[in-house]
Amino acid sequence: MNEKRNKLTALTVSAILAAAALAASFFERTLTAGLPLPPGVKPGLSNVAVMFACAVLGLPSALAVTAIKAGFTLLTAGPTAALLSLCGGLLSALTMFLLLKIRKNRLSYAGVSAVGGVMHNVGQLAAASALVGSAMYLNWLPILLLSGVGFGLLTGVILNAVMPALVKLKWFR
């Protein structure tokens, strides 16, 4: 009974996380619309949701949230943007999950998030380069590494701040 209920809760929470991720990226787009950010540089607030999924619900849930996010990008920005989002998102989610589970307790959320942010940008850039068939975009890598670390730390701090409140909800057991 308890296990079944946990599964149901996990599914529900995953759905909420996906919605939260979408809302976060929309919020982020409105927020940064007027700012002169270089292409590809963005806060990645939806990472908070993906990381929470990694930490609490496990890899399948995190990947699902990432895929739903890419699916939504498909609808709003077209197939190219969706593919980039998917490649970056999957690489990032996978890395963060591994860091959280295998190398347990070595990195804080901020650290995991920073590495995750970087991997997200690396995945996107690799996909973009493969798509164009040239390494032209790789010149952009240093900037994206920097922004990945910076904004990754930021989203990590946000998760750090909301985690106690989320834990208090006692969704599991």
Partner: peptide, 16 residues
């Protein structure tokens, strides 16, 4: 979240 999502959709400014 649903409310927030709808709100943001109306401000949708895809920057492609």
């Amino acid at each position: 979240l649903c409310a927030l999502l709808t709100l943001c959709t109306t401000f949708n400014g895809c920057s492609s």
